[in-house]
Computed example of a mutant assay.
Amino acid sequence: MLTGSIVALVTPMDKTGEIDFHALKKLVEFHIKSGTSAIVAVGTTGESATLNVDDHVKVVMKTVEFAAGRIPIIAGNGANSTSEAISLSKLFANSGIVAGLNVTPYYNKPTQEGLYQHFKAIAESCELPQILYNVPGRTAVDMLPETVARLSKIKNIIGIKEATGNLTRLAEIKALVDDDFILYSGDDESACDFIVQGGHGVISVTCNIAPVEMRKMCTAALNGQTDLAQEINAQLLPLHQKLFVEANPIPVKWACAELGLIPTADCRLPLTILSQQYQTAVRDALTEAKLLS
């Protein structure tokens, strides 16, 4: 079971939108040295929605190559088409990744039964462990605890990234699943409380720029050092909030560039660089978190 701070890694790009694999390698090394628990390659923060399939697979495979077994790699493999998600899962099944992160189908708004059948079909298509990903704020569909409980009975569905930010949801899921079902927060702002209340870790945007601090916060929370965890989290709170002043990953890529972690803040269209009006707020949050002087 992977616990603690898992980074939802940005995908660095140049000004033409081409993937910067040299910068990607540096990011992988940065997280290995920082003690990050694992890397999610090409999740939402990695611009899964703007990469074509070839680029998606290249980024995952290069991340595995750069990691060279020193840090576990989870691959985003979700899609709003079940057949596409199955294809990605099969591609990644023997690639060296430890699991797939499988987002609820977006835009087409399936029923709870549709969600169950979608994830069941993916899980049964190959032996790759699957982590469910519920983020209704982006997908327009909310996978309810009862559906999660049904899916948890499928042997290679091993956990969920729950990104509603609703801590009541954690308690509801915990009451319905076995103890070995992994519970990750997908909301940095509530992640500390999520772990204190029985979660196993966070798949984090903030970890892109504050990996050491996120690791320390998660470790303290997992060890029952609640006061210490909350103290560290209070320092990070401005980042948790300001990294979402525009759609993720726009602000965090700008912050990464501001800290010199990647050469440019460029995204692929339709995403654009952080608007001028928000840059001061993000820079101030970096300063409050003691990442900039």
Results as ranks from 00 to 15, higher is better:
78 G>W: 06
81 S>K: 06
81 S>H: 13
82 T>S: 12
82 T>A: 11
83 S>F: 05
83 S>V: 11
86 I>R: 14
86 I>A: 12
86 I>C: 04
89 S>L: 15
91 L>Q: 15
92 F>G: 14
92 F>K: 15
93 A>F: 07
94 N>F: 07
94 N>C: 12
95 S>M: 11
96 G>S: 14
97 I>K: 01
97 I>L: 00
97 I>S: 11
98 V>P: 15
98 V>E: 14
99 A>G: 12
100 G>T: 14
101 L>E: 07
102 N>R: 00
102 N>L: 00
105 P>R: 03
110 P>Q: 05
111 T>F: 02
114 G>D: 02
114 G>N: 01
115 L>G: 08
115 L>E: 07
118 H>L: 03
120 K>I: 02
122 I>D: 01
123 A>F: 02
125 S>L: 15
126 C>A: 08
126 C>T: 10
127 E>I: 15
127 E>N: 15
128 L>Y: 11
128 L>G: 03
129 P>T: 06
129 P>Q: 10
130 Q>A: 00
133 Y>I: 12
134 N>L: 04
134 N>A: 00
134 N>Q: 07
135 V>T: 05
136 P>C: 01
136 P>H: 01
136 P>I: 01
138 R>D: 10
138 R>C: 04
139 T>L: 02
139 T>A: 06
140 A>N: 11
141 V>T: 08
142 D>E: 02
142 D>K: 07
143 M>D: 09
144 L>W: 00
145 P>L: 12
146 E>C: 00
147 T>H: 02
148 V>I: 10
149 A>I: 03
149 A>C: 09
150 R>W: 12
150 R>T: 08
150 R>S: 06
151 L>R: 05
152 S>A: 15
153 K>N: 09
153 K>Y: 05
153 K>A: 13
153 K>M: 13
153 K>R: 14
155 K>I: 07
156 N>C: 14
157 I>L: 02
157 I>Y: 06
158 I>Y: 12
158 I>C: 10
159 G>V: 00
159 G>K: 06
159 G>Q: 04
162 E>N: 11
163 A>S: 05
164 T>Y: 07
164 T>G: 03
165 G>Y: 11
165 G>P: 05
166 N>Q: 14
167 L>I: 05
168 T>M: 09
169 R>Y: 06
170 L>T: 07
172 E>M: 06
173 I>C: 11
173 I>L: 10
173 I>Y: 00
173 I>S: 07
173 I>A: 10
174 K>E: 08
175 A>L: 04
177 V>I: 04
178 D>W: 02
179 D>V: 08
179 D>Q: 05
182 I>S: 12
184 Y>S: 06
184 Y>F: 04
186 G>T: 01
186 G>I: 01
186 G>P: 10
188 D>N: 00
189 E>V: 13
190 S>W: 03
190 S>H: 06
193 D>W: 09
194 F>P: 10
